[in-house]
Design a protein around this nucleic acid. Structure first.
Lengths: 350, 350
DNA sequence: CACGTTTGCCCAAACGATTGCGCCAAACGT
DNA sequence: ACGTTTGGCGCAATCGTTTGGGCAAACGTG
């Protein structure tokens, strides 16, 4: 960018002047909607414009355009923590789809702190984004109620909210059921859940699906067998110690997240339990790590990149004024060594 | 944003009109540099302006400002892949520091593909960023030579380039030496390296530091004991199989990255080797995972968040026209179970 | 040949801020 | 009493686009 061998800056005006044309003509040819690009000038003129623009390396100034059109082609993306691989992977999908569609993204971490959530929403709105993708929603939708979001399109991703709003999520409830089904088939009667944070629909729904299925099988899971936790290794470890270090130890454990599951695995090892033999374990998300762990981890695969891409597509439709349906993507159970062999006859009541 | 109970849009002009003032006055009071904020209006007027701005929820339009000032307060950030935790963590540092300083970031993945790198540099420049943080540099600096970067400030992070340019990195060479030192102290004569991609200074320098130290100790490492790899689990596994599945198996292995190390661990397991006993292993980056693995991984801790923050600070100085020194942050060796006990007398020639 | 209709362009007004300059009145110095 | 500051503002140009109107010439039609 800069000036093209003098003759004025490389802007529409610069080009227009060199060519003895008006900026409007140049604008229409270079940046106009396809229809206008054709009709705006003669073949010959259009060619000259495009050639010069090319030579000078013209790039439309997005600030000027946004100022005029009130459209920034920018979207804001909120996540609790980008260094979590699940989140990072979803974001990769978002970024890929956004780039393909000519959008740029601002992404920011809110650490699940409601104050930060509001704050960052304010920041991205101040940047005049066209819409938001919210990946850190809490079930109560606290940060979503603010007046700022009244008339800005947004979609939720990964986590839904009880407040409603367009969202794209994995079918977490079904994912939980799949694990329950698997454990039931293996004959596990006493099971427990490392449930994640209660404000996150991911953990809550996975837990709900799992317990629901066990209830249906006539084996309701007592409350003390469901332990909240953070979604990281340390959280899984803590919860596991609580659940496992007691006489009536469950024979199978469902961690709603692979990292929590890794923590569980660590705790199990510390307690002298062998995964797959003394304890069946399943995680969620089928992180690249899962299959590579010393004892390969049974996990529910959820389409993360696709979730991100989908969120962008839905957001674009929202921006266009539509109100698309929320999307729920199908999970798939990946059975591996950690869930071990049957410990008894199948308990599936179906 | 919108209109504040009618009376015009919430812009400087809107506010000025309601107050019977000129936009310039309002601008200076609200957005001017601290010095002007004081002198621009009387205490009383300033108060009225600020009150109304507050009531209406005024937010300066960044597009308008950028158009005028040619300063966008935007920076572009390039990384190979954000779903890699090392990268994601560095980015967290960048994002935090940037936000604190009123900057927003565009971050994008280039997958170490030179074509994509150029492409994305073009994209962020088209967005008129004030500067770039480049986290995907190749040693040959291929993507850095383009004319686009001639007059845009940038700093490298994580990886340096042979072309020079301001960078902030971990002292990777020293990190490699630390591991070598450790292995030597444990008496390992036959060692090997999972070296990462040769175009990344991280892997190259860590490998160089390691081999250098062994050479100094009079135990040069033959070339076939240094195996290139990708930085992920699969890469580590492949390289490890190549290095370990042979009669003259090394007794210690240095993987230049924790994920590669995890891959190595997997391969070792498959070969029936016990980490810490049959094979000493060290990784790099001290990922949160390292300490939590079934066999806790010895790893070199590198200050990742700090690297990100530092990059932003350096970039700001570059933008201000200075030419700060590159920074090299100190690594620290975290010894854990995976490197095991001594296998012989110390070999340290020092 | 008169009369619509394209074609091919130009005019000019936005969009919302920033900033050098100028102006007027009151306060001040001598 | 008369310049000179200084405080407190306003004027107006500018950044680079977009876009609804025009307007003349060329063209098609009857």
């Amino acid at each position: 960018m800069g000036r093209g061998s003098e003759g004025g800056p490389v802007t529409l005006r610069g080009i227009a002047e060199r060519l003895g044309l008006d900026v409007s003509t140049v604008s229409r040819v270079l940046n106009g909607p396809p229809a206008e690009r054709e009709r705006a000038a003669s073949q010959e003129t259009a060619r000259r414009i495009r050639r010069l623009a090319d030579e000078l390396g013209y790039r439309p100034n997005p600030h000027a355009a946004s100022l005029r059109t009130r459209r920034s082609n920018l979207i804001g993306v909120l996540f609790p923590q980008l260094s979590e691989i699940v989140v990072a992977t979803i974001y990769e999908g978002i970024e890929a789809e956004a780039t393909e569609r000519g959008l740029s993204t601002f992404v920011t971490n809110t650490h699940d702190d409601p104050a930060l959530q509001r704050d960052r929403i304010g920041m991205v709105l101040a940047r005049r984004v066209d819409g938001l993708i919210i990946g850190d929603a809490h079930l109560d939708g606290a940060a979503l109620k603010g007046p700022e979001l009244r008339d800005v399109p947004f979609v939720l991703v990964n986590r839904r909210s009880d407040l409603g709003g367009v969202s794209v999520t994995c079918d977490d409830r079904l994912g939980g059921r799949l694990v329950a089904e698997h454990f039931l088939a293996l004959g596990h009667r006493h099971v427990a859940v490392v449930a994640g944070k209660p404000f996150a629909s991911t953990g809550a729904d996975r837990t709900a699906g799992f317990t629901e299925r066990y209830r249906e099988a006539g084996l309701p899971i007592p409350a003390e067998r469901v332990s909240d936790s953070s979604f990281d290794i340390a959280g899984g470890r803590r919860a596991a110690l609580e659940l496992l270090d007691r006489p009536d130890r469950p024979s199978a454990l469902f961690a709603v997240n692979d990292f929590a599951a890794i923590g569980v695995a660590g705790a199990a090892r510390d307690l002298g339990l062998t995964l797959g033999a003394d304890l069946a374990l399943a995680g969620f998300n089928d992180t690249p790590l899962a299959a590579e762990l010393p004892v390969a981890l049974t996990s529910v695969r959820s389409p993360m990149t696709e979730q991100g891409r989908c969120a962008v597509r839905l957001l674009l439709r929202r921006i266009a004024g539509e109100t698309p349906e929320s999307r729920v993507l199908a999970p798939r159970l990946m059975v591996r060594t950690s869930s071990g062999d049957p410990v008894g006859p199948p308990l599936t009541s179906a």
